[in-house]
Computed example of a mutant assay.
Amino acid sequence: MIPILRVLLYLPSVSATLVRGSHREVAGAPPFLPWWEEAFRRAFPEDVRSALNRQAHAPPLESAPWALRVIKRLLPRFRLEEGYEFAYAALKGERRCLLPAVLVQGMLSSMGLTSGVYTVYESPEGKRSNLGHAVAVLRLGKGDYLMDPSEPTPFPKHRGPFVATPKGLRFAEPQHAPDGAIVGYRTREGTLTPDPVAPLSFPYLRSQFYYYRGEQAKGGVFRGPSTPEGLPRSEAMLRKAVALAPENPLAQYVLGPTLRKEGRLEEARVTLERARRLYETAGFVPPGVEAALKRL
């Protein structure tokens, strides 16, 4: 897994993969890295690199909550429609789940800690969704700790992470220790220890950014009344998401209703059936997939 924020801080030519993609979508936003460093200096009494170096010497279960506090201080406003973009973070201090998860993962990695990002389909309260929520994961020898800036306390016990296993992407049921550590992942093939389980790949995370751009396109598939300009925008972003990570079932699924709204019913059916196969292979088919197929 690429240590994303370490890349942002020390290898800016490589970090352009995520940041430049965001700034292409948003005009007038200040460059992300200078904004991040200046915002940190205003919020805390030291520069971000010194803080990361200091936190690298603290116990991991203390450094991880610190990273969450940084996100909540620098990105105080939740915004469903735009909070996934680096550019809107710098322009408005906005956040949604994916961007904070990526930034937390990067801070942990910059401290020398093994970390990654999962999407989740079942909350700590048991509420199910369709992989639209992202969390960071801190990986220690005693287990994996989920980190979610959207939750009030560190290390929430989400019930349904979507993870990479030796058999492919899988919906998993975590087995939690009392302190919140995940010590096992139950999948369709059986229960795995954390060792063979991996966070989502960098192409998958890039795909998820494009998924949100398609989902939230004005006049597109979901946001507001669909328009002749908005639907092609949704389609283009979702096709980019699928191209980056064909194994991303959520991107495949939402592309189906987009095509249906554009009147391309057979393409929509093929796309939705492809999405259903991905979900079936991973171990769970959300009800919306079958409902979308019935509408065709």
Rank of each mutant, 00 (worst) to 15 (best):
I2L: 09
P3D: 08
I4K: 06
L5G: 05
L5T: 14
R6F: 01
L11F: 13
P12F: 06
S15A: 13
T17K: 11
L18P: 01
V19M: 05
R20S: 14
E25R: 15
F32T: 07
F32L: 11
E38W: 00
A39R: 15
A39V: 04
R41F: 05
D47V: 10
V48F: 02
S50D: 05
R54G: 03
A56W: 01
H57F: 03
P60N: 03
A64W: 15
L68A: 04
V70G: 00
I71L: 11
R73H: 09
R73T: 13
F78W: 08
L80P: 00
E82S: 12
G83M: 00
E85K: 13
F86V: 12
A87Y: 00
L91K: 10
L99F: 05
L103W: 07
G106I: 15
L108D: 05
L108G: 00
S109H: 15
T114V: 12
G116E: 02
P124E: 04
G132D: 15
H133M: 08
H133W: 09
G143Y: 01
G143M: 00
L146S: 07
P152A: 11
P152W: 10
F155A: 01
P156V: 10
H158G: 04
R159G: 05
A164S: 02
A164P: 14
T165H: 03
R170C: 09
A172T: 12
H176D: 02
G180L: 12
Y185S: 06
R188H: 03
L192E: 11
T193V: 10
T193A: 09
P196T: 02
P199E: 00
S201W: 09
F202W: 14
P203Q: 07
R206N: 08
Q208P: 02
F209T: 04
K218P: 03
G219S: 04
G220T: 11
G230L: 03
Y253H: 06
L255E: 00
L265D: 02
E266G: 09
E266M: 06
A268H: 09
A268L: 12
G288E: 08
